[in-house]
C-alpha cells in the first residue's frame, strides 16, 4: 500500500495498492485521474527527499505532495 497525501489540495489522502514498484510520474497521474483534478506543477517528498518522475515508488512508501509554490 502506498499513501499519497496531497497537501493544500482537494484531492487529500489517496491510498493505492501496488504489487510491483511503479514510476512516480505514472502513479501520480493515476491519483489525479481518480479525482479529476488537474495537478499543475507539484513537489513530491518521500522521507525528506524530493521525488523525481522516474523514481520508483514501492509498497509501504508515504509521499507528501505539495503545489509548487514559492516564498516571497
Amino acid at each position: 500500500m502506498v499513501i499519497v497525501n496531497f497537501r493544500l489540495s482537494e484531492i487529500g489522502r489517496v491510498v493505492i495498492s501496488l504489487n510491483d514498484p511503479e514510476k512516480w510520474e505514472t502513479l501520480v497521474q493515476r491519483c489525479a485521474a481518480r479525482s479529476a483534478i488537474e495537478l499543475g506543477t507539484i513537489l513530491a517528498v518521500r522521507r525528506g527527499r524530493l521525488l523525481q518522475g522516474d523514481d520508483l515508488v514501492a509498497d509501504g512508501d508515504e509521499i507528501e505532495v505539495f503545489p509548487a509554490l514559492s516564498g516571497g
Binding site: L8, S9, L43, V45, F66, P67, L69, S70, G71
Partner: peptide
C-alpha cells in the same frame, strides 16, 4: 492555490 494560500504554503514544504 497561490491566490488561496499565498507564500505561507512554504511552511509545510
Amino acid at each position: 492555490l497561490f491566490t488561496k494560500y499565498g507564500t505561507a504554503a512554504m511552511v509545510d514544504i
